[in-house]
Design a protein around this nucleic acid. Structure first.
Length: 212
DNA sequence: ACATTAAGTGATT
DNA sequence: AATCACTTAATGT
């Protein structure tokens, strides 16, 4: 699909033709491959990304460089961090990494605020995205505070399947452990149990979900 | 055949 | 649930 078609398919029902035109005119398309880092912690953000294809994972990092997965962004989503950064000139507190090959429209910050006064649907979109991100954040706080590791892994697998649109996910136990900020051994044991319960089948570098 | 990396397991805290 | 120490299995060179 062309970038234009993707933009229309993703945002056509939300934005007026005039705004879509503006986006096309001012935005630049960025294609990223799986694993590419889009935003690093501490970066100043000059662009607001609109995701038109693929999926992005958003991570927090501690002083030792250990990660914690916050949430996934899908087609039609945008990054709340970049919105606050655009307006307030703060540095990014998160890292954004391509979960799959993705395409993104990069909107210059100047347009971001300009459009808020010019297009009411843009304003609505920005506020809406903001509230969605906040909501995701609360969900991830909940899972940290109230869910045990079993449930967290279960949620992780479910989310991963959703964003990748595949019942087979390609991860190592170590990668899951990194995302959830736990140890590989713990992940392996819990997955082993899920396999015995016939809810997943494990392979090397791959997990197939059965009963989710 | 050998080295490397992923995953499995018992024991300890 | 985390860590250690070790084993086994799969994969790359």
């Amino acid at each position: 699909m062309t970038d234009n078609e993707l933009l229309n398919e993703t945002y056509g029902y939300l934005f007026s033709p005039e705004l879509l035109n503006e986006i096309l005119k001012c935005g630049t398309i960025r294609s990223v491959k799986i694993g590419d880092v889009l935003i690093e912690i501490g970066n100043n953000i000059e662009f607001m990304p609109l995701l038109i294809d693929g999926a992005i994972k958003v991570l927090r990092e501690d002083e030792n460089g250990d990660d914690l997965l916050l949430y996934f962004l899908e087609k039609g989503d945008t990054c709340a961090m970049s919105m606050t950064c655009c307006m307030g000139k703060t540095k990014s507190a998160i890292r954004a990494e391509a979960e799959r090959d993705s395409r993104i429209v990069m909107i210059p910050v100047t347009k971001m605020s300009e459009w808020i006064s010019d297009y009411q649907e843009w304003k609505a979109f920005v506020f809406d995205s903001y509230s969605n991100r906040l909501n995701e954040m609360i969900i991830s706080i909940d899972s940290l505070a109230f869910m045990n590791m079993d449930e967290r892994i279960h949620k992780y697998l479910k989310d991963k399947v959703t964003v990748n649109k595949e019942l087979e996910i390609f991860v190592t136990h170590q990668e899951i452990a990194n995302d959830l900020h736990t140890s590989r051994v713990v992940v392996s044991r819990i997955l082993k149990r899920l396999e015995k319960e016939k809810r997943i089948v494990m392979y090397r570098n791959k997990i197939a979900l059965k009963d989710f």
